[in-house]
Structures are given as C-alpha cells and as structure tokens.
C-alpha cells in the first residue's frame, strides 16, 4: 500500500550527484523520465554523463533508496544512452549552483572544432575571465583543470560535451 504524498518524480529529482553534491540529478539532466505503471511500479530512466562515469551505480542505488523511503516499494531504474547526454542539458539552476560551489559551468557546445571549445571560462572565485586551462582532464571525467591568472587559484570547470 503506497502511503505517500510526494510524487515519485519529485523524490527522484531531489537525489544528488555523489561527485557534485550541490547538484541534483535533475539539475544535471541525468534524470530523463519517471513513470508509474498501472501496477504501481515506478520506472526511472537515467542517462550517464560519460560512458564510464562511476557515479552512475551510486545514483541508481540512491534513487532506489529515496523512492523506497518515500513509500514506493517497486522501483526499477533503467539507463539509456540515446540521445547522448550533453552539457547543454545542465539547467540554468544547475549552472548557478556549480558556480556558487566553485566550479566553472560549461559553455554552450559548439560543433566544428576538434573538441568542443570552452570560450571565456571565468574564475568562479573572483570572476576574472583571465584564466588558463592546465589540463583538459580533471578530478572527474566531466571536468577540466584551470588556474586563474588574476587570483592564482586553481579551479575545476565542467567541460563542454
């Protein structure tokens, strides 16, 4: 018997990314769909940011746990790859939270170059546009390493994908 007042969509949407704990899976665009069938089975559809993102297993189990705790007994989490996730799916709210947390949000994806170019990455600490990429690969698959020339602080930036 389901005795809950919060919709399964709202419950799933509040689950946070274990590697970017300020962001919810909804902010990130990782949560694609939440559907409830006639038998009360909740089917949650998620998509990985990167094929090898190790946070996916944690996100899957966190969503199941959150829904169980909210009273939904039968939960299935399924992963889809199509259409492929893009940093353009990070919501405006998600971008704002990233910046607040000290991570530069990604610039919009442009087609054409060898890799999507991050133009004008601003330092999330001092706001200076005078920044330099130190490595295209950062602490997680989705981030690059930057350093600010103005305040000399190193910082992470979500790279456009």
């Amino acid at each position: 018997m389901v005795t809950t007042t919060t919709s399964p969509r709202d419950v799933a949407a509040r689950v946070t990314d274990p590697e970017l704990p300020v962001l919810t899976v909804d902010d990130l665009g990782v949560l694609r769909d939440v559907a409830v069938d006639a038998g009360g089975v909740v089917e949650v559809t998620i998509t990985p940011t990167y094929s090898g993102c190790p946070a996916m297993d944690a996100i899957r189990s966190d969503i199941e746990t959150a829904l169980h705790d909210a009273g939904y007994a039968d939960v299935r989490v399924r992963t889809v790859l199509r259409p492929a996730w893009s940093t353009d799916w990070i919501s405006a709210e998600g971008r704002r939270k990233l910046e607040e947390f000290g991570i530069a949000p990604p610039s919009p994806v442009r087609a054409g170059g060898p890799v999507p170019l991050a133009l004008g990455v601003r330092c999330p600490r001092c706001g200076s546009p005078d920044t330099e990429m130190t490595s295209r690969f950062g602490s997680t698959a989705c981030k690059a390493l930057y350093v600010c020339r103005a305040c000399a602080e190193p910082f992470d930036a979500v790279k456009a994908l």
């Binding site: 094929s51 889809v80 790859l81 259409p83 492929a84 295209r136 690969f137 698959a141 790279k159």
Partner: peptide, 13 residues
C-alpha cells in the same frame, strides 16, 4: 548506434 554516439564525443577528447 547509441553506444557509438555517446562514445564518439568522449573519444574526441
């Protein structure tokens, strides 16, 4: 097709 479209963006890096 889905695996390849996802992976191609990663391999560009």
């Amino acid at each position: 097709a889905g695996i390849a479209a996802k992976a191609e963006k990663e391999v560009a890096y």
